[in-house]
């Protein structure tokens, strides 16, 4: 037992050291890879924060809304009100949370596809409004001041910190009483309520946490790429990407969305550089194959592999017949 824990702890430290050091080291010769790493981490943050909401059974298509709100709030406050970027990013997160709580309360009674469509409508409405209003730069978009003077390695550490914080939150959620509330609500809201779970509270809380990280990531994106437009900040591709990675990697887990995001974005990059023309077709086929033939995603494959490795000295007798 302690052996396994040691191995796991060692592995975790090694991964952590690698994600901190490698991109910074590579940056000295190949700055492009640091840029790519930042993209991957933005994608991973969106994927994992989307998954936290999904754990309550709310399959949202509004992740771009929170991302865009974070981006626009921060850029507007820093350029028009002269706020420091850190304050702008924090405000972006707050505005995203407020919007999420409102949307969460409005969509409480909606399930499944109706919920998804309502959240999509919310996101698209924000995009259309931003596209029309002159104060937000309309269709032209806005220029954003650079985070940390545009120093890429520092920016990388910022998004890495955000993702690590989110990872901790996700990990905690999945091993606390929240996990039981979320999973019960996802299975059957009425039964969960009758068993004492405050369904409204947990659904709205999940919305708030999810939007907090989407909002701050949107703000980060704005101050790293230095330009935002309605089409990009409120892009449907953001919402869809945020749900594809968890499905690909393994829903309702911490590792699944992270691994899914990294593999998808890195894989896309490898395909782009090797196959070049027509790579999205291969990408699409691979994605479809995984979703069709691996219902648990990559995490599901991992779990079934791990189950085949015999584990001696497992704690506690389970009393289950073998092979059941």
């Amino acid at each position: 037992m302690t052996g396994r824990a040691l191995v796991r702890g060692g592995l975790l430290l090694a991964v952590l050291a690698a994600v901190v050091v490698l991109p910074l080291w590579v940056n000295r010769t190949q700055p492009y890879y640091l840029q790519l790493s930042i993209n991957v981490l933005i994608f991973a943050t969106l994927a994992l924060s989307w998954d936290i909401l999904a754990r309550t059974g709310q399959l949202s298509l509004a992740h771009a809304a929170f991302y865009g709100l974070g981006a626009y709030t921060s850029v507007l406050l820093t350029t028009r009100a002269g706020l420091p970027i850190v304050a702008g990013m924090a405000a972006g997160a707050v505005v995203a949370v407020v919007a999420a709580v409102l949307l969460g309360v409005l969509t409480l009674r909606l399930r499944g596809i109706y919920f998804a469509i309502a959240t999509l409508a919310f996101s698209e409405t924000l995009r259309v409004i931003t596209n029309q209003v002159r104060f937000t730069g309309a269709a032209t978009g806005l220029v954003a001041p650079p985070l940390l003077g545009g120093h890429r390695p520092s920016q990388y550490l910022v998004i890495l910190t955000i993702l690590l914080a989110l990872t901790l939150v996700s990990w905690w959620v999945n091993r606390s009483r929240w996990h039981f509330a979320f999973t019960a609500i996802r299975a059957n809201e009425e039964v969960a309520a009758v068993m004492g779970v405050d369904v409204v509270r947990f659904k709205v809380l999940a919305f708030a946490i999810s939007a907090l990280f989407a909002g701050i990531t949107g703000a980060f994106y704005a101050h790293v790429f230095l330009f935002i437009s309605p089409l990009e900040a409120y892009s449907l591709a953001v919402s869809v990407g945020a749900l594809v990675a968890p499905i690909f990697g393994g829903l309702y887990t911490t590792a699944g969305p992270l691994v899914g995001a990294v593999v998808l974005r890195a894989g896309e990059e490898v395909l782009r550089s090797t196959v070049q023309r027509g790579y999205p077709i291969i990408y699409g086929f691979l994605l479809a194959a995984v979703i069709l033939y691996m219902p648990g995603g990559l995490a599901g494959v991992w779990a079934s592999l791990a189950a085949r490795i015999p584990r001696p000295a497992r704690r506690g007798a389970r009393g289950e017949p073998a092979g059941s």
Partner: peptide, 23 residues
């Protein structure tokens, strides 16, 4: 419930734990 409504993706023990935790 007349039509049994167990929480899927949970074991028997975890199903009952929901009541102990929140009920």
């Amino acid at each position: 419930f007349q039509l049994m409504q167990p929480f899927h993706a949970m074991t028997v023990r975890e199903n009952v734990m929901v009541g102990e935790l929140f009920g």
